[in-house]
Lab assay of single mutants.
Amino acid sequence: MQIFVKTLTGKTITLEVEPSDTIENVKAKIQDKEGIPPDQQRLIFAGKQLEDGRTLSDYNIQKESTLHLVLR
């Protein structure tokens, strides 16, 4: 499924993921596309910060959901 990741600069990254993918996994995909190390990434969905060990389905993230990427 496709999800979108919006950065603070207003750029939107499109990722191909599975509901069973972990947040860690998603961060690795963002690193592949954008070169941002996962340890600098914070992903936010519905106002919650997403934890590395959880999966997209844990957070009920469905196709075409938009996550927000904050760098630390």
Rank of each mutant, 00 (worst) to 15 (best):
G35V: 03
L56C: 02
T22V: 06
V17T: 14
A28R: 11
R72L: 12
M1P: 02
I13D: 01
D21R: 04
E18G: 13
T14K: 13
I36N: 10
K29H: 08
I30S: 01
K48I: 14
I36F: 11
L43P: 01
I3K: 00
L56D: 00
Q49D: 14
L71P: 11
K6G: 09
D32K: 07
K48E: 10
L43K: 00
K63R: 11
K29N: 10
I3V: 13
P19L: 13
L69N: 01
G35F: 05
E24A: 13
I44F: 13
I44C: 03
V70T: 08
L50H: 00
Q62F: 11
T12E: 11
D21A: 12
T14E: 08
L15K: 00
G10F: 04
I44N: 12
T12S: 06
D52C: 03
L8F: 12
G47N: 14
E51F: 07
S20P: 10
L8H: 13
P19V: 14
E16I: 13
Q2H: 14
V17K: 00
Q41N: 03
Q62H: 11
S65K: 06
D32E: 08
L50E: 00
H68P: 01
G47F: 08
E64L: 07
K27A: 02
G10C: 03
G47H: 09
I36G: 03
T12D: 10
D52P: 06
T9D: 11
L15A: 02
I30E: 00
T55G: 04
V70D: 06
A46S: 08
I3G: 00
I3C: 02
S65N: 07
F45H: 11
P19N: 06
L8I: 13
K33Q: 12
G35E: 05
A46Q: 12
D21M: 08
L71H: 11
E24K: 13
L43V: 04
T14I: 13
K11W: 12
E64A: 08
P37K: 15
V17N: 02
L71Y: 08
T12N: 04
V26D: 00
S65T: 10
Q40Y: 11
T9H: 14
D58H: 15
S65G: 10
R42E: 15
Q40R: 06
N60S: 06
T66G: 03
F45V: 06
V26C: 02
K6D: 08
G35C: 03
V70S: 04
K29L: 07
P37W: 06
I61A: 02
T14A: 09
